[in-house]
Design a protein around this nucleic acid. Structure first.
Length: 589
RNA sequence: GGGGCUGUAGCUCAGCUUGGUUAGAGUGCCGCACUGUCACUGCGGAGGUCGCGGGUUCGAGCCCCGUCAGCCCCGCCA
């Protein structure tokens, strides 16, 4: 398959089986070693490296001279015979392979300037600054590590298509030029030339389109969808990103969860990791209670306990006050944690403080009993009531759940990151279900949708919608892996009246409901099947499976944290003429 | 919008704490030598607006202010 008009094989695919064969290779000069009378070149292509051997015994003088002159990253065509390496230099510990090519002809077809950043790195040589890697992206993309990542990405894409196709999903494309329908994040806007003053928006997700495809009767849809959000970036957030987007009709939450599990199991399988189905399920309330976060890392135990019922009269007064104000005392018992040093405890304390806790209470159980600053704080009675063993460490935080949950999650995370802490299992998937439908927005005092406004309320809670909307659970579910949110989904509202009611609850005026969501409401009124779906963050999944620490390492041409493209140089100013053509004019500052 | 870290040779870094002669190392690059290397080796050489602007000082890579860029985090991201 790799044979073309210009080459017979890829460099990296030659093995012992090719010995004696006449081959023609095309590739990049990875490294050159010139011994005077002999020259060796490591030739690199997508498949890997092979050594080209130039020796007067088989290489004409003119070719010898040419080989001695080629610089790094030059593209050459080399002809010769595959040979076993001399016994002494075969298969050394440095990973040299068994075969090399005895070159009889060498042609430079792509001369290269000396690369500003190295492609071939020495062992343990630091990577160039990320700014330079992004600026000289073609060179960086030549690195075997990035080639591996993008190869894996390709395989994951194909596997996704295969799995969903096998499950009778149809791949249907939705528009990139869409209608601005704010879903929370800021839209990228595209001015219309033919309609002065009007704009398209790039999709934050194909959400409404895929719902309309269900109304249109396509039953099962998926798309590897490019999405756009004009928000500030992080290591795991890019302004344009890819999600595996799917939707199905006549389904309940379990149907979608089973489908998504199949996709995830296959993707992890593609990366060589076996995963068991079904994934454990945890309600949102349980997750918050036991782990303090809605995306718990279940590779570790260290669950949070409510210590409030154990509090005795000998506890410090501030705990009574916290309790009177509606707060609780919650904590984690760390088996064997009594050996933590004072410095480590300080680190945990600052983790809790950074999460806005007043402090961290701690006590360790030694042969002599409990000791530490926490003894006085929580009181001897609580410690007696706490079923503990020698070597235990108690870490606790007091206050309202909005303080103790994030603080204890931070403490738990810090505990798991200590060197030498082994996870109970390397791959922990889970479903978090029964999310609340609304979230309280502290700033406005209003209720805002916890996810998006198309999520169906839990049938059992429907009566609460009018009086106590904040108590309503949603048919919403998240897929979580090792403390990472892989994606989320829900059963959607299909009754246009209910959907309308939700918009009203969110305080959207009638005229705006019509203007922004009229096409959705009309669609639902055309006869909507019950439906629901899911979206998986594909870049993040690839990053996790590639073992990369940044999304930028699994995207061919990523943006910087300031949303710039350093390689091609975007965004860029445009001429006044171009702006006029789009009926735009710059503001004078 | 806010906070932190970084910016010195093509690349990776040292020098900054305590301002003072000509800013160093490794690697890459150039030249010479070298017939089994694989991070080839040996010898020689070139290579610097210390991110940019301003200030303090007799004197600034080093101190101060501002600014730009990259990265990390908070806000934000249904």
């Amino acid at each position: 398959m790799s044979a073309t008009a210009l080459r017979s094989h890829r460099a990296g695919e030659l093995t012992r089986a090719h010995v004696g064969r006449q081959v023609r290779l095309g590739g990049w000069v990875h490294r050159r070693r010139d011994l005077g009378g002999l020259v060796f070149i490591d030739l690199r292509d997508r498949a890997g490296l092979v050594q080209l051997s130039f020796n007067p015994d088989w290489t004409p003088p003119a070719v010898m001279a040419r080989a001695a002159g080629v610089g790094a990253e030059t593209v050459v065509l080399a002809s010769g015979v595959v040979a076993l390496r001399p016994e002494a230099s075969r298969d050394t510990s440095l990973g040299s392979r068994e075969v090399e090519v005895h070159v009889t002809d060498l042609e430079v077809v792509g001369p290269a300037q000396t690369p500003p950043i190295p492609v071939a790195r020495k062992e343990k040589e630091e990577l160039p600054a990320e700014e330079l890697r992004l600026k000289h992206r073609v060179l960086d993309l030549r690195r075997p590590e990035l080639q591996r990542n993008l190869l894996l990405r390709h395989r994951l894409l194909q596997r996704t298509r295969q799995t969903l196709t096998d499950l009778e999903f149809l791949e249907i494309e939705t528009p990139i030029l869409t209608k601005p329908t704010p879903e929370g994040a800021r839209d990228y806007l595209v001015p219309s030339r033919v309609h002065p003053g009007e704009f398209y928006a790039l999709p934050q997700s194909p959400q409404i389109y895929k719902q309309l495809l269900m109304v249109a009767g396509y039953d099962r849809y998926f798309q590897i969808a490019r999405c756009f959000r004009d928000e500030d970036l992080r290591a795991d957030r890019q302004p344009e990103f890819t999600q595996i987007d799917l939707e199905a009709s006549f389904v309940g939450p379990e149907d979608i969860q089973e489908i998504v599990e199949r996709v995830l199991v296959d993707l992890w399988g593609e990366a060589g990791v076996e995963v068991a189905r079904p994934f454990p399920r945890l309600t949102h309330r349980e997750a918050m209670e036991r782990y303090g976060i809605d995306k718990p890392d279940l590779r570790y135990g260290l669950e949070i306990r409510d210590l409030t019922p154990l509090l005795g009269g000998d506890a410090a007064p501030f705990l009574g006050e916290a309790r009177a104000a509606g707060g609780r005392l919650r904590g984690i018992v760390v088996p064997g944690g009594a050996t933590l040093t004072r410095k480590e405890l300080d680190t945990l304390t600052s983790a809790a403080r950074d999460a806005r806790a007043g402090g961290l209470i701690w006590a360790r159980r030694t042969a002599a009993g409990w000791e530490g600053q926490g003894v006085k704080a929580v009181g001897q009675r609580l410690l007696d009531a706490l079923a503990g063993a020698e070597g235990d460490l108690l870490l606790a935080v007091a206050g309202p759940d909005t303080v103790t949950s994030p603080a204890l999650h931070a403490v738990r995370t810090a505990l798991t990151r200590r060197p030498g802490t082994a996870p109970a299992t390397p791959h922990a998937f889970a479903w978090i279900v029964d999310f609340p439908l609304f979230e309280h927005d502290a700033e406005s005092g209003l209720h805002v949708p916890a996810h998006h406004p198309f999520t169906a309320p839990h049938p059992a809670d429907r009566d609460l919608l009018v009086g106590e909307p904040w108590r309503v659970r949603a048919l919403h579910y998240d897929a979580v892996y090792n403390g990472n949110e892989l994606g989320s989904g829900s059963i959607r509202i299909t009754d246009p009246a209910v959907q309308h009611r939700i918009f009203e609850l969110l305080g959207i005026p009638e005229a705006e409901i019509r203007r922004r969501f009229g096409f959705l409401l009309d669609g639902l009124a055309a006869g909507a099947p019950p439906h629901g779906g899911f979206a998986l963050g594909f870049d993040r999944i690839t990053m996790l499976l590639a073992g990369a620490s940044s999304l930028r390492d699994v995207i061919a041409f990523p943006k910087t944290t300031a949303a710039r493209a350093l390689f091609e140089g975007a965004p860029t100013p445009v001429s006044a003429d171009d702006l006029r053509g789009l009926h735009l004019q710059p503001l004078d500052d």
